[in-house]
Amino acid sequence: MSSWLQPPRLRTGEESEQEHRHATWLELFYDLVFVVAVSQVAHNLYADVSITGFLSFGFLFIPIWWAWIGTTFYSNRFDSDDIGHRLLLGVQMLAIAALAVNVHDGLGESSAGFAIAYAAGRAVLVLEYFRAAKHIPQARGLATRYGTGFAIAAILWLISVFIPTPWRFILWGLGLFVDFATPLTAPKSLHLGLLPHPEHLPERFGLFTIIVLGEAIIAVVDGVAEQKWNVTSASCAVLGFIIAFSLWWIYFENVSGSALRSAGAGGQIEIFQVWLYGHLPLVIGLSATGVGVEHIIATEAGNALSTPNRWLLCGAVALCLLSLGLLHRTGVIFKCKVRSKYRFGTAALLIILAIVGVGLSPLGVVGIVAFVCATQVVQDLYQSGQLTFQ
């Protein structure tokens, strides 16, 4: 911390892009509350593996993810690491902790608390944006627009507290729509010169991806810990780990800041928007994958895997691969039509498995999913020339 109190400063632009930036200790500490929040919302899905359960899981996951996104993009552009920013971020952490506490029954008795916690976190972010608008003339237009849009969304969430369910959730949806639309509808002229830092942003997104992958690993450990050790449960655990490890490999082997640097040089704000919104189905799929593996380990040996659990695992991994295929196709991560086709094709195979895999054992289903995920790693290595077959 360079001084006790200083105004926000612009961290992007041509000069700042030459600066090597990494996540700060404060950002890493901030991420800890999201570890808890993701774990809690995943627990909801574990308790209700159904279409309704998955939709509820996604509906609650989105505000958690968007709260992280808001702070990440603000810090990417304006982080000053002064005492004011630290204290405001600490208040946001308390709001996210409250969000995690209320997520267990977030669409029921705790929905009012969930809404208040989300609105409080957004209110702090709005304050930070208006603070940036006051001190950084170059960023005043964009910061004011973001602050205004996010303030409207926060007010909608706060009003929802006084509306009975299920009408309350309509205001939630409207608030999320305003939140999502605010960056999308901002004029390109406001973004130019204020594009996110091309090194800091991929690292931050990578860290959140690690958080949800960590939830998948925890699910494997919890699943095994709750069962009596036998060959089947141990094999399912190993295969579940292979799935998580393969998804980690094909994401982090292909991600870099090169696409963002090129987009920044060409003023292509669309690439940043695809980067932002294209990661949402990926992190939802990764979180759901861990829950699916945990259910598979919990299924007794000799029994066929139930249809909801089969759809959960196959659908979650397919969602991850579809998202990665989109990111490949648009060049947000390593631009490659071949890898994109492999991701899309494998996602289609997993959907087919979910449809026709009636009667398959848990070991059979997780084994097939692990195999097709591992083939993605092999294909990437072969295509890049790191693996040859003689």
Rank of each mutant, 00 (worst) to 15 (best):
E19D: 10
H20I: 15
H22C: 10
T24G: 08
W25C: 11
E27I: 01
L45V: 03
T52P: 03
I62R: 00
W65E: 01
A67E: 00
S75W: 06
N76V: 07
F78C: 02
V91S: 12
I116N: 05
Y118E: 00
R122G: 00
Y129V: 02
P137K: 12
R140V: 07
A143I: 11
Y146W: 12
G147V: 02
I155N: 01
V161E: 05
F169G: 13
G175T: 12
F177R: 07
F180I: 02
L184H: 05
P187W: 03
S189I: 04
S189G: 05
L190Q: 10
G193A: 14
P196H: 14
E199W: 07
E199A: 13
H200V: 08
L201Q: 03
V212A: 02
E215A: 09
I243M: 11
L247P: 04
I269C: 11
P281M: 01
L282M: 14
T289F: 11
V293W: 02
A301K: 05
S306H: 06
P308N: 12
R310K: 09
G315K: 06
A316W: 01
A316I: 02
L326Q: 08
R339H: 14
T346R: 05
A347H: 04
I352M: 09
A354E: 04
I355P: 10
G357D: 09
V358F: 08
G359C: 09
V369I: 13
C373K: 03
Q376V: 08
G385W: 01
Q390T: 12
Q390D: 14
